[in-house]
């Protein structure tokens, strides 16, 4: 009887957005009189940080710091339609809608600035700090604060824009299944290292090294949040979680957090996250959806590591000590 060590690898990809498309999201952007920008949506923040990311996307597109963007979301009396937060679609779909709306608003803003500066709008650029400058002659400039005041009180212009993003729905061909499920895919590869106690069947995940390719890390700290939390959930799925431990038998289902098991703060694997960015052709600044796929590769990587450690295959999730012990017993019996 011994503690045995093993490691396993898994590599995966994951589609961004609703399978087969057909899932629209809209956004509206408008300026306040003093040049702050309101983004109106009906998208939902589940904790992944949708509000913050939409603010950064709008800010980058308009050319102002993020703290000058206000997000008004998920009130159906004000926000235009969004299909919802699921299928790794939020950043990709809503982000594109916000870019389109912000671009339209930016164009009006530049037109008003052009009138104030008596130049062509196409000769203007933003400095990202809240100013509009003449290209090549940055001493000639106007603040976005003043442009918004002028638009409101002098020129009667609405600095605003509408955005809509829709990937047309694909219908699978009946016989061949020819279809277009998604326009871009995120990728990952995980190496997991485990210890298995062949006396108790207990598995300890020592480390997971995760490499994720997500198109673009729009906010690296928030990407890290998502990927670390997802990696934890993947390990949890691999080893612990089910509402029906003896599926398809319906008995013994857990009804609370004492019976439904997940790793606690004392059960954490050493977790390494490496991010690659291959921008997608149609993502907002190249971003893909990282929120779901980040929890997938750990499951098979852990399963493969368990095999590497003790030489039994557990092909049924979750990989519980009971299943490992039964497999070891069957193996010993030959």
């Amino acid at each position: 009887m011994a503690i045995r060590r093993g490691r396993g690898v898994a590599a995966i990809n994951y589609p961004t957005g609703m399978n087969l498309g057909g899932d629209p999201t809209q956004a509206l952007v408008h300026s306040t009189p003093t040049g702050n920008f309101m983004v109106t949506l009906s998208s939902v923040d589940l904790g992944q940080g949708m509000k913050q990311i939409m603010a950064q996307i709008c800010a980058e597109t308009i050319g102002v710091p993020t703290d000058r963007v206000i997000i008004d979301t998920a009130d159906t009396d004000t926000g235009p339609h969004c299909m919802g937060t699921f299928a790794s679609r939020g950043t990709h779909r809503a982000g594109n809608a916000v870019i389109q709306a912000a671009k339209e608003a930016r164009q009006v803003m530049l037109e008003v600035a052009a009138e104030e500066l008596e130049v062509n709008a196409s000769d203007l650029e933003t400095d990202g700090q809240g100013n509009i400058l003449v290209k090549g002659a940055p001493q000639k400039s106007i603040s976005i604060f003043d442009v918004a005041l002028s638009a409101h009180f002098k020129r009667g212009r609405s600095i605003s824009g509408r955005g809509m993003f829709l990937i047309p729905r694909s219908y699978p061909e009946k016989e061949t299944g020819a279809m277009k499920p998604s326009t871009c895919y995120a990728h990952a590869c995980t190496v997991a290292e485990v210890e298995v106690d062949d006396e108790t069947g207990e598995v300890t995940v020592l480390s997971v090294k995760n490499v994720f390719e997500i198109g673009r890390a729009l906010n690296p700290k928030m990407v890290e949040q998502q990927l670390v939390g997802g990696s934890w959930m993947g390990i949890s799925h691999a080893l612990y979680e089910t509402t029906e431990p003896y599926y398809p038998n319906r008995d013994h289902g857990g009804t609370d957090f004492n019976q439904y098991l997940m790793p606690g703060p004392g059960d954490l694997a050493e977790t390494e996250i490496i991010v690659l960015e291959r921008p997608s052709a149609d993502g907002p600044f190249g971003a893909k959806g990282p929120g779901e796929m980040c929890a997938n590769p750990q499951i098979p990587a852990v399963a493969n590591a368990v095999f590497d450690a003790v030489g039994v295959r557990i092909d049924t999730l979750p990989i519980t000590p009971e299943r490992i012990l039964r497999a070891l017993k069957a193996q010993a019996a030959g």
Binding site: Q56, E60, L218, N219, K221, F285
Partner: peptide, 8 residues
């Protein structure tokens, strides 16, 4: 970029 890629 100014805002994208920043850990705000």
């Amino acid at each position: 970029l100014h805002e994208i890629g920043q850990p705000r």
